[in-house]
């Protein structure tokens, strides 16, 4: 079987030491906005160069100045950033969104946070946004269930649509809750996705922090390209009847460098159990869990894995 391998990054990418210092000083009001903006732009350009030089197939907006993945929604009246809350099983915290009324997405909110103007024209761009199920699970919504589903479904669809209007070719929706939750209500997920589906735009679903093998029927019903985090285990008894799959082959939560023979074994299992003709190789979650230097080493490794997998299975 011949398979095409593509590679890209996902989620928030880490800051270098200089930027960490500048961002903190800007928050404390001891440097001006011009210096801050210049630092953000330089860091975005560095991440673009790293992706270009490693021949990644999409240029991912590095989202380096995002305080967390959900925060941009708090620019909308009726949504606020609430208490600091642990982000799954990590020493990493986000502010829980508090949605206190029936709100609609406001055009322009996402573009306030994107860096599309710094991304190169000759590559396709991508960006990561919160998936509707994870946003539903991690927000505090003071509405009844049906209203909450409706509001969140529309908010996510609004942001996805804006991303495409800004020129992004691919949106990946972070959906760790789909993998993390022991029980996932299928009807709830399908309802949350109905507005995004209506857009008829391509999106990927990134699942991590848990295994999705026991949720395969739901993943198939979503009818979208989804990811498997091999560091959460691979169940070789489950068939994956899809032609495109994303595989998290780089562990963003450990500095230990992955061994090809270990990764290869699990990638083979997935390919053998599926109908895939295209595999997207990526990190299992945001590289923001790693120091900048280690993250870059992992990007080099991602490129190397793509090269070796292409040699082994490529067309």
């Amino acid at each position: 079987m011949k398979v095409e391998f593509k590679a890209y990054l996902t989620g928030i990418l880490p800051r270098d030491d200089y930027s960490i210092d500048i961002f903190k000083k800007f928050e404390w009001g001891i440097i001006d906005e011009k210096t801050y903006r210049e630092t953000v732009n330089k860091l975005v350009c560095k991440w673009v160069d790293i992706q270009v030089s490693n021949k990644l197939d999409f240029i991912h907006d590095p989202q380096v100045d995002w305080l967390d993945l959900f925060r941009f929604y708090s620019l909308i009246d009726g949504i606020s950033a609430g208490p600091l809350t642990r982000y799954f099983e990590n020493n990493y915290f986000y502010r829980k969104l508090i949605i206190s009324e029936k709100v609609d997405y406001e055009e322009g909110v996402l573009s306030f946070y994107t860096h599309h103007e710094l991304l190169p024209d000759d590559f396709p761009w991508k960006i990561t946004l919160p998936g509707p199920y994870t946003m539903y699970r991690l927000s505090a919504v003071n509405l009844d269930k049906e209203e909450a589903i409706d509001v969140i479904g529309k908010l996510v669809a609004g942001a996805v649509e804006e991303a495409f209007n800004l020129g992004y070719s691919l949106v990946d929706l972070h959906e760790p809750s789909l993998a993390y939750d022991n029980y996932v209500d299928e009807d709830l997920v399908l309802q949350l996705y109905r507005y995004i589906k209506r857009l008829k735009l391509p999106f990927h679903i990134q699942t991590f922090f848990g295994s999705i093998f026991d949720k395969m029927p739901l993943m198939l019903k979503l009818n979208a390209t989804f990811s498997i985090d091999i560091f959460e285990g691979v169940d070789d008894s489950v068939k994956i009847p899809v032609d495109r799959i994303i595989i998290g082959v780089i562990d963003s939560r450990n500095t230990l460098m992955e061994r090809f023979h270990y990764i290869s074994k699990y990638v083979s299992l997935i390919i053998d159990n599926s109908l895939v003709d295209t595999v997207y190789l990526t990190t299992n979650c945001d590289l923001d869990f790693l120091p900048y230097k280690s993250a870059i080493e992992k990007v080099l490794l991602l490129n190397e894995f793509k090269r070796r997998f292409t040699l082994e299975w490529g067309r």
């Binding site: 967390d68 120091p291 280690s294």
Partner: peptide, 17 residues
């Protein structure tokens, strides 16, 4: 020590392996 890692927002700590 391997480098700074984010805990929240603009707060980081130096993490070790």
């Amino acid at each position: 020590l391997v480098g700074q890692v984010r805990v929240m927002e603009n707060r980081y700590f130096v993490k070790a392996a």
